[in-house]
Computed example of a mutant assay.
Amino acid sequence: MNKSLKVNSRDKALLVRTPFMSALSNEALLKMLNAATISSLPARHVVFREGTPADHFYCVLGGYVRLYRLNREGREADIRVCGPGDTFAECQIFGDDTYRFNAQTAENTTFARFDTRTVRTLAEQEPDIAKAIMACLSQHLLTTMDCVANDRLHTAQQRVAEYLLKNCPVSGGPASLRLPFQKNLLAGMLGLAPEALSRAFSSLRRIGVTVRGRVVQIGDVRALRDI
Results as ranks from 00 to 15, higher is better:
Tyr68His: 14
Asn71Phe: 06
Arg72Met: 07
Gly74Cys: 06
Ala77Lys: 15
Asp78Met: 15
Ile79Cys: 00
Ile79Glu: 01
Arg80Val: 08
Arg80Ile: 07
Val81Ala: 03
Val81Lys: 01
Cys82Leu: 12
Cys82Phe: 07
Gly85Cys: 03
Asp86His: 09
Phe88Cys: 01
Phe88Val: 02
Phe88Gln: 00
Phe88Asn: 00
Ala89Ile: 08
Ala89Val: 08
Glu90Pro: 07
Gln92Ser: 15
Gln92Lys: 13
Ile93Tyr: 00
Phe94Ile: 09
Thr98Gly: 00
Thr98Ile: 14
Asn102Leu: 14
Gln104Pro: 09
Gln104Ser: 13
Thr105Arg: 04
Thr105Val: 11
Ala106Tyr: 02
Glu107Ile: 15
Asn108Phe: 09
Thr109Ser: 10
Thr110Pro: 11
Phe111Trp: 02
Phe111Tyr: 04
Phe111Lys: 00
Ala112Tyr: 02
Ala112Thr: 03
Phe114Trp: 04
Thr116Pro: 06
Arg117Asn: 12
Arg117Val: 12
Thr118Cys: 08
Thr118Phe: 03
Arg120Glu: 14
Leu122Trp: 02
Leu122Asp: 01
Leu122Met: 13
Glu124Arg: 15
Glu124Ala: 14
Glu126Met: 12
Glu126Tyr: 15
Glu126Trp: 12
Asp128Tyr: 01
Ile129Phe: 08
Ile133Asn: 02
Met134Val: 07
Met134Lys: 05
Ala135Phe: 06
Cys136Ser: 11
Cys136His: 10
Ser138Met: 11
Ser138Glu: 07
Ser138Tyr: 08
Gln139Arg: 15
